[in-house]
Design a protein around this nucleic acid. Structure first.
Length: 584
RNA sequence: GGGCGUGUAGCACAGCUGGAUAAUGCACCGGCCUCCUAAGCCGGAGAUCGCGGGUUCGAAUCCUGCCGCGCCCGCCA
């Protein structure tokens, strides 16, 4: 808890100096207490044992009696060799109500470019692919909450084989061809009939199937190869045909993301770096590097083994025919990104780890920094891997519909008096928020299993739990606002005795910005999800212990605390992409 | 075969820049609506932290060797 640490660090350092030593790394050792019932900050005294030639417990005792009284300190207790500091709840309350939470953000404003999602525009999002978007968008929101200037960017893969396949299929296959090729597959869900991502992915899948066919394949491969080649040489007609093929698909995908509250500030097309000459210049520069190598057919690569890469060390950036590769364009893209921002963050699936290494090492070779990368593992289904080919995927659109339907069922049971329109609004907010939370709640590097049961859980440990606490605070706000001024006690005095639920809430609030700081710097949004759960939990306990409106009179102190919690909850929810409903 | 990641209660997961009784949710058992929304609150039970060594006053956390799972090792994207 930084709030307390700032106050007492000098006291602790003096106390240690009084035992005869200075220059010990006290600042790092004074840490947030592991066990919250022990206190707020803890100084383990074991490492001091050798220095002072005393048992740790005796050191803790000596330090405890050497710490002077301080307004911020509730109690200082030495137990089992630990020196525990408990914050004064009254002091904490006064600090928080005076706006302590608004003032401790960093002064320097950074401009951060976060690239996420960047999925190939060839079909609808399934839950696995959507993890990228949810993670990325949450990072965008949390950085903004922290005060950074953020650009959210989608890198559009508008050239290369995947789009070529789609464009070829749309040009050469009729609807009848497609459906007969896919006769053994599940039909597409009629709900999404008007959505181009669900429609056109059938053409893509049909073409993929044809490419497996021995008789058909050679001619198709030749045609697609020509398209790819033309796109990589910047052929404008071909690029235009590609765009006509993928743009409706991309629009459909973005519609899904929009429902989740995910938006982008900029779309940058991959072909841009080919047509403007950046890729060509880049390849010339790479060719002049010391670690450059040339294959028999003229293809070029960098030997990154010389720069510490293990395994396969040759990184090819230029084909034998002189054209560029995906990673080459990615490097050109990164140099362009660096020209605009002082921090780059990419969100990538774990399958891109090697590629990210190659891009990063090459950027360093060119004298540029490497971007920070947040990798995530794939979401599995209980039946196994999520795979479009095998048909065992959960589409985001289907999940969102199901979540909304479940939520609507719960709302109409819980609030029978609500009108249909209200129920739908609440259900949409609850459904989308729950889906986001269920995914962001898990640390990115962990591959987790998607289960409908969890995704549609609206109880403790879910987004609706947080939303519910927030709506309680809103309800109180509305009631107080509607009271006559004479019923509101204007004096703000903090009582000597505070109920436990209130103290817990204050302490959660006191830790809130510590958590946000960590999350923003270490790119670990799941910890912020946990913090909001604690906050909601804390608010519920406070709500239980403290009657804000009692017998028609408002307790001003309680009300101020409730209002602070309401505001922190609301901002935090926005930070996670949870809709802050005022009633539910 | 090599590289990277992961393995924590029946299930799903926090904690992993070493610190005191391993946190949370689901499921399970018991209690709380004449009082600001019970999508809530309180209590209970449930864990050889994958297995074996090592470093340390102290290891879920660091090192090492096994084992399981995932991803990668294309002049694809």
């Amino acid at each position: 808890m930084q709030l307390l640490k700032q106050q007492i660090l000098p006291l602790v350092e003096e106390a240690i100096a009084s035992l005869g030593k200075t220059n010990l790394p006290v600042e790092n050792m004074l840490q947030p207490s592991r066990e919250l019932d022990q206190g707020d900050l803890t100084l383990p005294c074991f490492p001091f044992a050798k220095v002072f030639k005393m048992p740790p417990a005796a050191i803790a005792d000596a330090l405890a009696s050497a710490i002077p009284e301080h307004e911020a300190l509730g109690e200082v207790l030495a137990t089992n060799g630990y020196l525990n500091f408990r914050i004064s709840p009254q002091w904490l309350a006064s600090q928080l109500l005076e706006g302590a939470m608004d003032t401790i953000h960093e002064v320097s404003k950074r401009s951060v470019l976060i690239e996420h999602t960047s999925a190939n525009p060839n079909g609808p999002f399934h839950v696995g692919r959507a993890r990228n978007a949810i993670l990325g968008d949450t990072l965008v929101r949390l950085h903004r909450l922290w005060g950074h200037e953020v650009t959210a960017e989608y890198y559009v893969d508008d050239m290369g084989k995947q789009v070529a396949v789609l464009a070829w299929a749309l040009e050469h296959l009729s609807q009848t061809d497609v459906e007969s090729l896919l006769h053994d597959r599940e039909a597409s869900n009629p709900t999404w009939e008007g959505k181009a991502d669900h429609q056109r992915v059938r053409w893509y899948q049909a073409a993929q199937k044809l490419r497996q066919d021995e008789d058909e394949a050679p001619a198709i491969e030749k045609a697609i190869g020509e398209l790819v080649h033309a796109s990589e040489n910047g052929n404008e007609d071909v690029l235009q045909a590609f765009e006509d093929a993928y743009q409706p698909v991309l629009d459909g995908m973005l519609e899904t993301l929009g429902r989740l509250g995910i938006q982008f500030d900029r779309f940058t097309k991959e072909s841009r770096f080919v047509t403007n000459g950046d890729v060509g210049d880049l390849m010339d520069e790479l060719g002049a590097l010391e670690i450059n190598g040339v294959a028999d057919n003229g293809a070029q690569y960098l030997d990154l083994g010389a720069r510490g890469l293990k395994g396969k060390t040759e990184f090819f950036y230029r084909r034998g025919d002189g054209s560029s590769l995906y990673a080459t364009r990615d490097i050109a893209y990164h140099r362009w990104k660096w020209s605009m921002s002082n921090e780059l963050i990419n969100v990538l699936g774990e399958d891109h780890k090697l590629q990210a290494q190659q891009v990063g090492l090459t950027l360093e070779e060119l004298g540029q920094e490497r971007p920070e990368v947040v990798f995530y593992s794939f979401i599995k289904l209980p039946e196994g891997k999520m795979s479009t080919r095998q048909g065992n995927v959960v589409f985001m659109d289907d999940l969102l519909e199901e979540a909304k339907a479940q939520a609507a069922k719960v709302v109409s049971e819980l609030r029978p008096d609500y009108e249909q329109e209200t129920i739908h609004q609440i259900a949409e907010a609850v459904g989308t928020s729950a889906v986001r939370f269920n995914i962001i709640n898990v640390s990115p590097e962990k591959g987790f299993s998607f289960r409908w049961e969890d995704a549609l859980s609206f109880e403790s440990g879910s987004a609706p739990f947080i939303m519910y606490s927030h709506s309680r605070a809103c309800s109180i706000h509305r009631r107080v606002s509607s009271l006559k001024a004479s019923d509101v006690d204007n004096g703000l005095s903090i009582p000597d005795e505070l109920p436990p639920g209130l103290v817990d809430l204050l302490r959660v609030l006191g830790r809130h910005n510590d958590c946000l700081r960590k999350v923003v710097h270490e790119h670990r949004p799941h910890l912020f999800a946990e913090q909001l759960l604690h906050l909601a939990n804390g608010y519920n306990a406070f709500y239980r212990d403290c009657y804000i409106i009692d017998e028609g009179k408002v307790n001003q102190f309680f009300y101020q605390v409730s209002e602070l919690a309401r505001s922190v909850l609301r901002k935090g929810m926005v930070g996670l992409g949870i809709t802050p409903l005022e009633t539910m």
